[in-house]
Amino acid sequence: MTKASTSAVSFRQVSRHYGEVRAADNVSFDIEDGEFFAMLGPSGSGKTTCLRLIAGFEQPTSGDILIHGKSVAGVPPYERDVNTVFQDYALFPHMNVADNVAYGPMIRGEPKAQRLREAEEMLRMVALEGLGARKPNQLSGGQRQRVALARALINKPSLLLLDEPLGALDLKLREQMQVELKAIQRRVGITFIYVTHDQGEALGMSDRVAVFNRGRIEQIGSPADVYEHPASAFVAGFVGVSNILTGAAARSIAGAPAAFSIRPEKITLVAGGEEAPPPGACVARGKIDSLLYLGSSTRFNVALEGGGELTVIEQNRSGGARGGAEMQGRPVLLWWRRDHMQGMVESSSA
């Protein structure tokens, strides 16, 4: 008999196969009640498949899924205490905003006056108070996304599933909606399970992140743990920008592991004897192969004397980028703290 779980969601060795394709491959994890949990990975990594399995749109090939301690094997989507917000919003174009939000209570048979009051409360929560009479095509993309969120929240689900809901928005609006989504989740206190391929969204909003690759989970942890201590070369390369040195290039650096990763912002670039590295630091020498001015920072690509290349990101704190064209080809010294290196192992899915 399956042991009961107190988690909001538990995956127990869950697989989902489509012929020879293993979209989810023996996946196990737990999501705590009230947690903002992000599933992060590239296209085809299995994250959306796992979300659809939670929603009931798919059934596992093997394994079991528990929601609040109860197996949902064979339970249809409409009998699960779950709502989903999609990237395309899926609003009814012929209904006004208030009726879109009140659709769930209408299906449950609530009186019109009551459901419209509830809809207005939800619209107030998502900062759309007074817009209930408008049609969806009279709203901006960000406003339509809020309507979709309000329509899901009015049903008071125990789990809210969000399938790349910000993917269609421009950068500024995405950043604004990230802040608002996190604030709403804190306010309502329900479990949010968020699927994205955008590392910034996952790191910025979630309490924990699961990094997916080829149907499996490479690493689960807090955003800081996943970023600062990647468990594999795949995680180091996918979550943020990371330098990975192996073989002769890694061995040429005294005290470094045989294979390691180091984040570009952890490296100090010294040109022309500007400063000496502190005792105990790892040191490498090379020449600037190229540089890219990014406004708030400059990215240097440095070809190392011992082979390989390191990328260094330097904040432009003094009001302008250091160097410029004259830095091209210039010999430089790089140094970093030993505890900022992360020893690498082969990807579990490789």
Rank of each mutant, 00 (worst) to 15 (best):
L291K: 07
T61Y: 05
V101F: 07
A256F: 10
S10Y: 05
V332Y: 13
E129N: 12
L292A: 14
R134K: 15
G63S: 09
Y89H: 08
A233G: 11
I253M: 12
R208C: 10
A55D: 03
A38T: 05
K112W: 15
G74C: 11
D64T: 10
V195L: 01
A150D: 00
A248R: 12
G323C: 08
L181F: 10
R115M: 13
L51G: 00
Q185P: 04
V283E: 01
A276C: 05
A321W: 14
G273P: 13
S10R: 07
T49Q: 00
R338S: 02
I313Q: 14
G130S: 09
L40R: 02
K47P: 03
V302D: 05
N137K: 13
S242V: 11
V283Y: 00
R208H: 14
E118R: 11
G132E: 08
D99G: 06
G280C: 10
L40P: 02
L203I: 12
P42C: 12
D99S: 08
A233I: 09
G247F: 07
S296P: 06
V85K: 02
Y227F: 15
M125T: 04
E79Y: 14
I190F: 03
F192D: 00
R151G: 01
L292E: 14
L291Q: 12
S28V: 09
L162S: 01
P93V: 06
N316T: 04
E201N: 03
A258V: 05
R117M: 11
M95D: 00
I253E: 07
G272K: 15
K135H: 14
L161R: 01
L131T: 06
G41A: 03
D225L: 10
L334D: 01
E309P: 00
P42L: 10
V75E: 03
A102M: 05
E326L: 11
M327I: 09
V97F: 05
T48D: 13
S10C: 11
V241F: 15
T196H: 02
P223W: 08
R337Y: 04
Y194D: 00
G273D: 14
P230N: 03
S15I: 08
